[in-house]
């Protein structure tokens, strides 16, 4: 009898706004809602803080899927950070398609701080979607190597 194929466990990076999705993740915990451990949360002060470079670097360093979670439309604490983030996600979708990575591997989602159930639902849905897509074509299961940078460029990348 052959060994069962181990299920592919994707690495998913979620950039979560402090004012909504990050609090919603807390809420999900308080409500005892479970969501896949595949989702690695990066707390940001606003989804508008997330740059195209952060999104691309996440893929470069081995993420199979990435999403940005921002406030509901009209609810951004900094006025329009969420709409800016959405535009950047669209820009990165085009760029990763040029590289040969499926654009479905990145998306923008919106939620409020009280939507713990939505946070868990989104995390589950995206994990399943990425699991179905398989590992990121750039890594084939291996982490990406480090890349040389001059001091100034390294500072800018931080």
């Amino acid at each position: 009898m052959s060994e069962p194929t181990p299920q592919f466990e994707p690495v998913i990076v979620a950039f979560c706004c402090h004012y909504c999705a990050y609090t919603a993740a807390d809420q999900a915990g308080a409500q005892r809602l479970s969501y896949p451990a595949n989702v690695k949360i990066v707390r940001v002060p606003c989804s508008g803080k997330v740059d195209a470079l952060h999104l691309l670097r996440a893929f470069e360093k081995g993420a199979d899927g990435v999403y940005v979670a921002g406030c509901l439309e009209g609810d951004c604490h900094f006025n329009n950070g969420n709409t800016r983030a959405a535009r950047r996600v669209t820009q990165v979708q085009k760029l990763i398609e040029e590289i040969g990575i499926e654009k479905e591997r990145i998306e923008m989602v919106l939620m409020s701080a009280g939507m713990g159930d939505r946070f868990a639902e989104v995390a589950t849905e995206i994990t399943e979607k990425i699991r179905a897509l398989g590992p990121s074509p750039i890594r084939g299961g291996k982490p990406a190597p480090a890349r040389a940078q001059t001091k100034a460029s390294a500072k800018a990348a931080k």
Binding site: L53, L56, R57, F59, E60, L95, E98, I99, G100, I101, P137, I138, R139, A144, P145, R147, A148, Q149, T150, A152, S153, A156
Partner: peptide, 20 residues
């Protein structure tokens, strides 16, 4: 980043040094 990923996808490792 895009070049690095493109080359990795093709199984090639290229050293890219950034400077502005």
């Amino acid at each position: 980043s895009a070049l690095n990923m493109t080359f990795l996808k093709g199984g090639k490792s290229v050293q890219i040094t950034e400077h502005t």
